[in-house]
Design a protein around this nucleic acid. Structure first.
Lengths: 344, 344
DNA sequence: GGCCAAATTCAAAGCGCTTTGGATTTTCTT
DNA sequence: AAGAAAATCCAAAGCGCTTTGAATTTGGCC
């Protein structure tokens, strides 16, 4: 069943049927009703390829998935993708997922746009002065950034969470609990979100006359094993930190393991706050000692970005171009007052 | 730059250029060379939408992603997807990722096919007598199954790993090490791979005169927390198992945590073998006690399936329609001889 | 040189949809 | 009730590619 057949069935022209379907105003209400009904009865579905050809829209959004042989596939990415998918499927949009070595993202992204296969680009894993921003601005392809760059004007569409604020809040809470020795297990140091989190933590500490020494900062991919190694290293320091900030519950997983292994009690000997992306497979309340977290749903972010991307392509309502989401600080058992007099 | 312009530039007809590009035999070698060169110089790229419309091929493969609000987004799925993507991008193929509640997969799958947006379907999370198999066979859409059903003839294209064999091997090794009390932390009980793994384990045990009692079998989503809960439950039994089989390193993560928390030593008091999908974020050799595993790369499976799917669509070489991959048993430190005389 | 087959090349007809530029009909004005 | 403005609807022209059916060249052979 195609448009032609459908229009013949209705005794209308293809033009009118097409317009009725696409919500154009110049079609009689009654006519539109008939068309819609016929669609329901016949199960007609427009051919997407023909639509794409006729409109010049690809009907798909492109994303670069940082992954390569031997390189991690990020859990966080999967969760975000689920959100994107939720929304995209509602509008019959496709994805073009272009795997790329993390270091080639800019080039891959350019190729993806040049392929003409996508009419919008989703950008993530932002770096300082990320070259992809000026590149995409110079092209006409719409895009939305998940996160923000650092060091360049943020005059582009983005959705980010308040990373600085989140880690400021977390660090302040721990400082108020009397902790004096902090450590941060963070994401890769070239990524903007990690920089902001560090900044937020440092700011809160500074307000309490505290610092975050270099040896108490660990940057790495956000995996369990990295969390473990980071924590092990911290515990070997002369004055091990009693307050840990952690950029992901995945990192926290490893960190907690190291803490247990060292025979320390989480929430007593040592406190930890992790950022929680609301990964359904790893819930902070299910840790052996439930984790205090700063929370913001990655999946919700994915949904929202898809919404904006698609609205932009289809010229639907105009959505805000820049959004900064606050995070929730949720206190559970992994945070407690600083242990008393430290054994010098 | 489109075909028309390109052909004018070359003083050829669109027909000839198109044929030259698509490898048809009836075009002069010299002409083809000229065409290819012009393509290189002009950077011409065929419009995919037009190709799709003309050929009737969608140029994309569809997959149903089991995920819904509150439902897990499976790490394993992400890793597999990375493999699919690796391969798909080489052939300029898209994905249509259709999120679906796990219980609606069949319906979602049917809709996906009916949408005409995909020219092949990838199927996973097979169940016993899975209804999607007959459904897809009745439609003409090509598909490849990751895994196999149970209870119906396997006369469809699939790629599976030898789950039975993997868990047979693992269980046998532990039995040979003198273990007498086994437990299995498995995937969801309605999924075929989990059934096969259980069967493999039971078979090996039977050969040693051993059994796997019901209370020593735990079926659940493969998350860290489930692994933890399973292990905790096992440790509370009157005669706790000393040999654990685990369907994923993610489950093992939680299980190991529970073991440590109980003050037991992995590889001494208790032995554990996990199936390793080669998730880059969770490597068995990096566990505090490196894990003995049965190994098979999920990403490689993704690549291979994409290869077969695409070859099928494009009528390239004929690839085998059924593949069963053996797994590697890799012994590390988490397995050791059964502890001596158990304290009764 | 003439004739047939093989090798090349081409013109044109779609694929199924959107959209432009008019027609045609209906509804207001005055 | 006539003329103008709205409201509806339509025919036809693409969008850029593939593919059919035919035309044109070239090559081989007697």
């Amino acid at each position: 069943m195609n448009l032609k057949q459908l229009s013949q069935l209705l005794g209308l022209s293809q033009t009118t049927v097409s317009r009725a379907l696409n919500g154009y105003p110049e079609v009689n209400a009654e006519t539109r009703r008939r068309v819609l009904e016929a669609v329901r009865e016949t199960g007609y579905r427009p051919n997407r390829a023909a639509q794409r050809l006729a409109t010049g829209r690809a009907g798909s959004i492109g994303l670069v998935m940082p992954t390569a042989d031997g390189i991690y596939s990020d859990v966080h990415f999967g969760e975000f993708l689920a959100g994107l998918g939720d929304e995209a499927v509602k509008h019959d949009f496709h994805f073009v997922i272009n795997p790329s070595h993390p270091d080639d993202e800019a080039a891959t992204c350019r190729k993806l746009v040049a392929s003409g296969n996508v009419d919008a680009i989703f950008l993530a894993y932002m770096r300082e002065k990320d070259p992809r921003i000026p590149m995409l601005k110079s092209l006409k392809t719409p895009f939305v950034v998940h996160g923000r760059t650092i060091g360049v004007p943020t005059d582009y569409p983005f959705l980010d969470i308040d990373n600085t604020g989140a880690f400021y809040d977390a660090a302040r809470l721990l400082a108020q609990l009397g902790h004096r020795h902090f450590a941060l297990i963070n994401g890769p140091d070239h990524l903007a979100f990690a920089m902001r989190r560090k900044k937020g933590a440092k700011r809160a500490l500074a307000e309490h006359g505290l610092t975050l020494p270099e040896e108490c900062i660990y940057h790495a991919r956000m995996t369990d094993e990295q969390g473990f190694q980071a924590m092990e290293r911290f515990l070997r320091l002369d004055t091990p930190p009693t307050a840990i900030l952690c950029s992901s519950t995945v990192l926290a997983l490893g960190a907690v393991r190291a803490i247990n292994q060292a025979g320390l009690k989480l929430g007593q000997d040592i406190s930890l706050i992790a950022h929680d992306d609301v990964l359904p497979m790893l819930r902070p309340e299910n840790f052996s000692v439930p984790l205090t977290t700063t929370r913001s749903s990655l999946r919700a972010a994915g949904q929202r970005i898809a919404q904006r991307l698609i609205a932009g392509i289809l010229n639907l309502e105009v959505l805000p171009q820049q959004e900064l989401w606050k995070t929730d600080l949720i206190v559970r058992a992994s945070t407690g007052p600083a242990p008393a007099g430290k054994p010098a």
